[in-house]
Write a protein that binds this DNA or RNA. Sequence first.
DNA 1: TTGAAAGCGCTACCAG
DNA 2: CTGGTAGCGCTTTCAA
Lengths: 332, 332
Amino acid sequence: MVSKRYPTSIEVARLAGVSQSAVSRTFTPGASVSARTREKVLAAAETLGFQPSLIPKIMLTDRSGLVALVVGGLENAFYARVVQSLAACLREAGNQIVLVPVDSDYTLDAVAARLAQYRVDAIVSALAVLSQDAAETLSASRIPVVSFNTPVTAARVGSVGSDNALGGRQAARLLHARDVRHPAFVAGPAISPASTERLTGFREALREAGRPEPRVGGSAYTYEGGAEAATQLCAEGPVDGIFCANDLCALGTIDALRRAGRRVPEDVRVIGYDDIPAAGWGGYDLTSFDQDVPALVEATLAMLARMSATDAAAGERVLIPPRLTERGSTRA
Amino acid sequence: MVSKRYPTSIEVARLAGVSQSAVSRTFTPGASVSARTREKVLAAAETLGFQPSLIPKIMLTDRSGLVALVVGGLENAFYARVVQSLAACLREAGNQIVLVPVDSDYTLDAVAARLAQYRVDAIVSALAVLSQDAAETLSASRIPVVSFNTPVTAARVGSVGSDNALGGRQAARLLHARDVRHPAFVAGPAISPASTERLTGFREALREAGRPEPRVGGSAYTYEGGAEAATQLCAEGPVDGIFCANDLCALGTIDALRRAGRRVPEDVRVIGYDDIPAAGWGGYDLTSFDQDVPALVEATLAMLARMSATDAAAGERVLIPPRLTERGSTRA
DNA sequence: TTGAAAGCGCTACCAG
DNA sequence: CTGGTAGCGCTTTCAA
């Protein structure tokens, strides 16, 4: 049997012996209904299993209460955490989350149109890489967009992220304090701004400290990518301190170093970024940067609020300072 | 400036000099419109930035194209993987995902009502623990529900999961083959059916093999929970083979064992469940059970399809056999 | 406090 | 192939 239609306010009204308007008012928080009417309505609604539909309201207001969350790899625990935190906060505000996992920019184009058709109120893009083209597509949908961790600029697009350059500088200073002579950087995808910014800060502070230029390897935000990069860096020359673009890379780096017979931290110090749970696991004990997810999420929601109220905040960028969490992988 | 309303088909019609119906037909896949009309309409739509709203259609059909996905801990990479896979398949079918992260059953009640108000077409519950009460709540919403990994029974609720008992039996046989004398089980939450079923199968096959009853510890699906349980099990008596309710527990178990000076696998063999990426990481090299996410997801979608077509499939339960992935933690 | 009526933007049906 | 018209289920005036 095909799904029966939902009961409507008219049916409830009929059963309760009141007008449809009375039913609507009963379910409208601040409306004026006599206790008697309300009671009759609630009873009728109960027996019919009536749940007022939100759909007509959306039609009336063009506001759906839906916020789209575009994400790349949820396999990175950092993003899993961001999604959960964002979802919890949005729910608090009475919004629902439409999750849109995306593999490549390609799929994003189709997605943006679909989201517009659902009249989502806002889009949060938590993609490690968001191309300018993709940003324009999103922007064209006339829906406010906050780009998480990728500093794109376009109309109606703002961005929030960790202060990656600052993190990079702190990493350099820590390795300097540990007297590292041969620093290296294990990068994420070449087009990832977060990776690039971390490297820039790292490089600058290394230079200021009078340390040599870091050698650079790697091109993926994955465990395997980190392992490969580390193996190669070791093969190419001396290394005694590695800053990795994220924790997943750093864990792969540590395992690859150990397979190559290098001890961490005695022979090589390693630093990651994100402070995912695995960083604290016994086998790794990885020093890392906590991006401060709660602050990031709060800034995102605040920006979204500003954007939907006015057109201000578009093009804005908010940076949250990361917090260094020192663990065994950089022990003196 | 408050968000301007979206352009409507009427405005497009006016600009194109055709009727509103013509606009509608232009955007309806199999409809009959002359090439000339279509062209005029598309041009007008383009200049106005028109995206036909899906909302009125929902009102007409009571089908939103939205599928709710209720999840607990996304920090477990297994669930992150399930979410991604489910999302990808649903999108293929033209559905959008509404993500509903939930901490406790408590929040679930409120959520079910809200989902009904959005007229979601189906609910997939990927909660490690779904109480009977919560299932009833969901069931009461008259929306088809598939419970992922929790065998609840209620009207309009079906379930799909890994064959946990089978996995438990295989784990026992593997430890038997390694001549384990003092088996133990690190459990998840006491009320988690998956954990209980895994233990049941483990126990049975151990008994059949003539091995002693396993000692049992633990009560959380987390790294820390596994570590604590292992520490306690070691303190209480001899252990040389541990089957853990999931991989997160197993990784905590391995680290705790090593901290206690026990070698894995030489002194203690360890088996997990889920086969998350970290299981393959060098530091752990954990033997585990792959739940076969693609098969699980396919079964879920098939069941959903059956349920929305008819009332059949309610109360049904589909089991997918897990696949053992042997790694170093159970080496001979 | 109540009920009647208009209208949100679309699809579906009808007559031309 | 086209344009007119009738709703879908609500919220929101407006009178009573």
